[in-house]
Amino acid sequence: MLLLSRTQPALFFILLCPVNIIGLWWAVGSPLVMDPNSICRKTKRLAGKQAELCQTEPEIIKEVAKGAKLGLRECQFQFRFRRWNCTSHNKYFGKIVQQDIRETAFVYAITSAGVTHSVTQACSMGELIQCGCEATRSRAPPFPTSGPGADGSKWEWGGCGDDVEFGYEKSKQFMDAKRKKGKSDIRTLIDLHNNEAGRLAVKNYMRTECKCHGLSGSCTLRTCWKKMPHFREVGDRLLERFNGAFKVMGGNDGKTLIPVGHNIKPPDKQDLIYSAESPDFCLPNRKTGSLGTKGRVCNSTAMDVSGCDLLCCGRGYREETVVFEENCLCRFHWCCVVQCKKCSVRKELSLCL
């Protein structure tokens, strides 16, 4: 019987790779925790645009770090039932992003999306002096066939729309910085493509929110603004792209990517791409960064990726009783304290052999 805690904080730092694109990578550094100052201390390893941001706009770097954390959490959620579960609790995590596999494509895309989302949100919250709400004065209200105004009611742009263009540009400036201007190779092209796919998963799916004005909520006039999609939606959309990712190879000119296979349409800007097949992640492998799946919790009745047959790689599984410590019998005491007791919760789990 195992005694486990539900609170296991993920400690990580951002690894800035000096190979071809100085992308924003994750790796584990327990007990190191990434902070904006740690990025900028390594200015000699940063590309020109990155170093420039550190020197002139350190507050942007703070949002970059937040965006990386946002991307990490979403990656762990989206891959929680898969053989590779985006864990940051091992020192071989950096091995994953040194390969041109599907998982690397998702890492780059979700990180780039996270940076875009975090910077844009900081603008709307008034936390950055360089930006604010989206400028809508020059934008004329359209004549919609659906949504706001479709019923003939009056409406106008207003409120505080998200300035996603600013977040997009800052994410591009930091994520796409190259060490040598004009240098191009297949790895660089793939990384840049996946970075853009992540940003577009935010930028291309802005939604319209409106507020009614008028006596007794009559809605004689609506004020509308643009808001970013919820980041869970971004993660869901990128996971779909991960499942349908395109395998590519470099063209003879060294500047183009060609889909592998016959009669395959070229990937568009929102697709994820890769050039090498992923390992099966069944067994520990320091070279590939695989932790294996031994001891992972699986679903003995499921037939999808969380099922014991797939997750345990055919090795079988065992049943075990696990005891969790949880808060229970919580009471609110005036004013203003909540006091809880600790309760033990028993649960039967299936664990991979």
Rank of each mutant, 00 (worst) to 15 (best):
K42H: 06
V115N: 02
H89E: 15
N20C: 09
P148N: 03
C340Y: 04
K91Y: 15
C312F: 01
V345R: 12
E233C: 10
E320C: 03
Y168K: 07
T293W: 04
L46N: 01
E57W: 03
L46P: 01
S171G: 07
L200I: 09
E209I: 04
M34Q: 02
N20D: 10
Y108I: 00
A68E: 05
L221G: 07
N20S: 09
S306K: 05
A109R: 02
P259G: 12
W334A: 00
L353C: 02
R318F: 08
R331Q: 15
P266A: 12
L221I: 13
V19K: 03
V202W: 04
K287M: 00
C330H: 03
G29H: 11
V28T: 14
S88C: 15
G152P: 03
G48E: 05
P58K: 03
P144I: 08
C313Y: 10
C335V: 02
L46W: 00
L351C: 03
A68S: 07
I258E: 03
A276R: 04
I39A: 04
P266K: 13
M249E: 15
Q78V: 14
S171K: 02
T288D: 07
T145F: 02
L200S: 11
E103R: 11
F281E: 07
I61E: 08
T7K: 12
R286M: 12
I264C: 08
N204T: 00
Y108A: 00
G159W: 05
P141K: 07
E63M: 11
T87A: 15
V234I: 09
L15Q: 14
C312S: 03
A65C: 05
E134C: 04
C123V: 00
C313G: 09
Y317W: 12
L32P: 01
M303P: 00
T188C: 07
L3Y: 15
H262E: 10
R286N: 13
E209L: 09
F242T: 12
L189N: 02
R318P: 00
H230F: 11
F12I: 01
A105M: 03
M125L: 07
R318W: 00
K95A: 14
D100M: 14
F166K: 08
S278W: 07
R199C: 02
K66C: 11
F106C: 05
G251V: 10
Q130L: 12
G71T: 06
D253V: 01
W225D: 05
M249W: 12
N90W: 12
K154I: 00
C282L: 04
I96D: 01
K294S: 14
K49A: 02
T256C: 10
C352P: 06
R83K: 15
S38H: 02
G250A: 14
E240H: 14
G126N: 11
A68W: 04
S350C: 06
L353V: 05
R331N: 11
I258A: 02
R6T: 11
S290P: 09
P284L: 04
A150Y: 05
A105S: 06
L16Q: 15
N285L: 01
L239T: 15
K172A: 04
T256E: 09
K170N: 12
R73L: 11
E165W: 00
R222V: 01
Y317T: 09
L3T: 14
N263M: 14
L189S: 03
A109K: 01
